[in-house]
Amino acid sequence: MNSRNWENPEQSFEDVQKAEEILRKHPAPEPNKELIANIKAEITAALLRRQSNTYKRIIYKAAAVAAALIIIMAIGLKVFEKNGGENESVIATSIIPEAIWESDCLADDDTNLTILNAEIEQIQAEIIALQFGDNGDNGSGAITELEMKLIEINSDFWKG
């Protein structure tokens, strides 16, 4: 079909030109001047929108670059700290749980500590009693007893 129509290209071009002459003889209407003015106004508005979009894009890009830099710097600092201060890092923690230090109720925290505390209090009371001689005969007796034992150990020592 194609080759049949275009066997004689010169003739075909003539045909096309003659036919296009019809179109030239019947021109389409021209656009209104108002329309052209409106189009130009629309273009101005579109250009303004395009400009503001360009600025927005620049701002977004700058913000994204800044965020990326901050992240990279933060990661870099962390890595640097890890490598440089590896041997110096000391983790200080308490053996006794912090809750025990903060608590006022000893019995609730540790029973062993409670027993120990009771014994210390008892010894303190006995010492006070001994010092003030409140223990009657027992107090002076104990001292005498200790002195007797000391003499006995002393004499046994010299006897061999």
């Binding site: 194609n2 003659k18 036919a19």
Partner: peptide
């Protein structure tokens, strides 16, 4: 291009006839 030329030639020929 052959298709374009063929269609155009036929179309314009028909338009001429109609006019």
């Amino acid at each position: 291009i052959g298709t374009t030329l063929s269609k155009l030639h036929r179309g314009l020929k028909k338009l001429r006839e109609l006019m």
